[in-house]
Design a protein around this nucleic acid. Structure first.
Lengths: 314, 314
DNA sequence: GCAAAAGTGTTACTCGTACACCCATGA
DNA sequence: TCATGGGTGTACGAGTAACACTTTTGC
């Protein structure tokens, strides 16, 4: 459109473009994923979740001018008919080949370092979570339409931090043509190239699957733009969540033992948690439902399996 | 620029414009301000802060197409050389004729109800606080440059909610041309019209001073767009702040009694607080400095005056 | 003196933490 | 039988809420 034709000198006078970056956490890389750096800790068994020491996230290696060759968060500019959350989903899927289990807005960064003559860019950062199920699923092929549109539905709902009593939003008075940030209609097949503001400095070419690797947050590489800040921000947000259980359970599968949930919490917090107290507090806080089943896997007393009451998939 | 020349049909294919909305709280309207609705409670004395029952905020009456005649939050699109925070400051100043004491990013709303052929708009919501000093200051004239650039400096720092340990951001590796969201250079004299994306649905013509009124949050009028949601959000954020004292003191002047601080806290929370416990906890939490002076104003024992340690004005 | 708010003291209760201890299973 | 994690009981301390009480002013 007009953007492409604007000269370099003209571009800086255009209003800022809107892009999205996604910090997508998981307890481990997907089985088929490239691992970036720090591959010392042996992640032996494929599916079993045993004492996860840290969290991982996918990064994309830049193949363009600013910060060429460095690693950056998945993301890119919004398409004209996409919600912010859908842009996050689409770009994350292009990088990780999977839809996340949870997606939530993090913060808007007005500025990113760029050359003076580039168009300005407002980056809306999102953070996402992958559960065991998503990591085990075979990678989606390019061109398929994303599954799990529910993930976007969470967004802009419980983005608030603590005891935010999710006030219901009443319908607007006037005819409601459809918020362009609504959960969203068919994502048509038009992810071929970078239309719109794609020439922007941070704009991301769809990674073909190469140039993507998963990194432990303990061993991150040099990062492009201010993405290191964004990740710090996301980690802080994750840890600040008072409702640990609500966040932690999304890293796991459908059902889980309290031991697993505690291990995840310890991975998030980066420190040990008393098992006895964790049990009591988790159960007291509510949201955990005893399935009645037992997990007879380990060389010890079988543990009860729980589900989380949150309707993850309606 | 290009935007103006784009036809209506073309506009919807443009990338979203970026605009800002500001929820600016104060304990009372400025003396010279128009009061909207609910003017029953007699606000007798001009300067004395006596048992403020609620919070107030400025709204702007729309003089354009969607939601014409309804009230909306101060705000508007970003200029090409403005940071997000500066856009918030500029538009808030245009409405309230005053610079706030504190400004902080709230949340990004991807969508706002609009007609299908209008350009999309991403709204970054900010919330601001006015103190007694700002409310008493004579209104700034149109065309002056804003004072109190410090306010913008807060922004993007402590936006996080609770125990966020303000991690220092290291300098970027490459030459740093200047983040376009930096605290910001001379705001030149160009607030004459709406350049750029100003034709956008929500775009705001600088209010000449009319069409602006202050409302109690207990008696808000019908609001345009999803601004009611944004206000709810801002109020929730304000109440969720654990460090009440740090937030509350900004509503007051340079020095204040603990009784005043408690009254402000009660206004924020909307409920009574035990004076004895409030005193102990406030002092224990630190940040309050006994000035040694006394406030001999009321028909009772004089109260010590305190300052807050936060360097509000460096 | 009396009202009213400043300021102090005391108690009870809640919640998080630490840790001792029993339970049930696989090897 | 022993090691291991599941699961229960309990005591201690910090922080908070509730409220009685004293102090100091203006009227």
């Amino acid at each position: 459109m007009h953007y492409q034709r604007a000269s370099v000198a003209e571009r800086r006078y255009l209003p800022p473009a809107v892009a999205v970056s996604v910090v997508a956490f998981a307890l481990r890389p997907p089985v088929d994923a490239e691992r970036g750096a720090a591959s010392d800790a042996a992640h032996g068994s494929s599916t079993a979740i045993a004492a996860p020491p840290t969290m991982w996230l996918p990064l994309v290696r830049r193949t363009r001018a600013p910060f060429l060759g460095e690693w950056a968060l998945p993301g890119g500019p919004t398409e004209w008919d996409e919600t912010l959350a859908d842009t996050a989903l689409r770009t994350l899927r292009a990088a990780a080949r999977r839809d996340p289990r949870h997606l939530e807005q993090l913060y808007s960064f007005g500025g990113i370092e760029r050359s003076a003559d580039a168009q300005r860019l407002v980056t809306i950062a999102y953070w996402a979570q992958y559960g065991e199920r998503e990591l085990d699923a075979e990678p989606a092929r390019e061109g398929e339409r994303p599954r799990g549109r529910e993930a976007a539905r969470d967004e802009e709902r419980d983005q608030d931090q603590d005891q935010d009593q999710d006030q219901d939003r009443e319908q607007p008075p006037a005819p409601r043509p459809r918020r362009w940030d609504d959960p969203l209609p068919p994502l048509s097949s038009r992810d071929s190239g970078d239309a719109g503001a794609a020439e922007t400095a941070e704009a991301l070419e769809q990674p073909a699957g190469e140039n993507v690797a998963w990194f432990s947050i303990d061993a991150l590489p040099q990062l492009a733009f201010d993405h290191a800040e964004i990740i710090d921000h996301a980690v802080a947000r994750l840890r600040a969540k008072t409702e640990y259980a609500a966040v932690a359970h999304r890293f796991l599968g459908e059902s889980f033992t309290l031991g697993q949930l505690r291990a995840v919490t310890e991975a998030i917090l980066g420190q040990a948690v008393d098992p006895a107290n964790f049990r009591r507090q988790s159960l007291a806080r509510g949201g955990l439902i005893d399935t009645g089943e037992l997990d007879s896997g380990g060389a010890h007393r079988p543990a009860r399996l729980y589900r989380f009451s949150e309707p993850d998939r309606p």
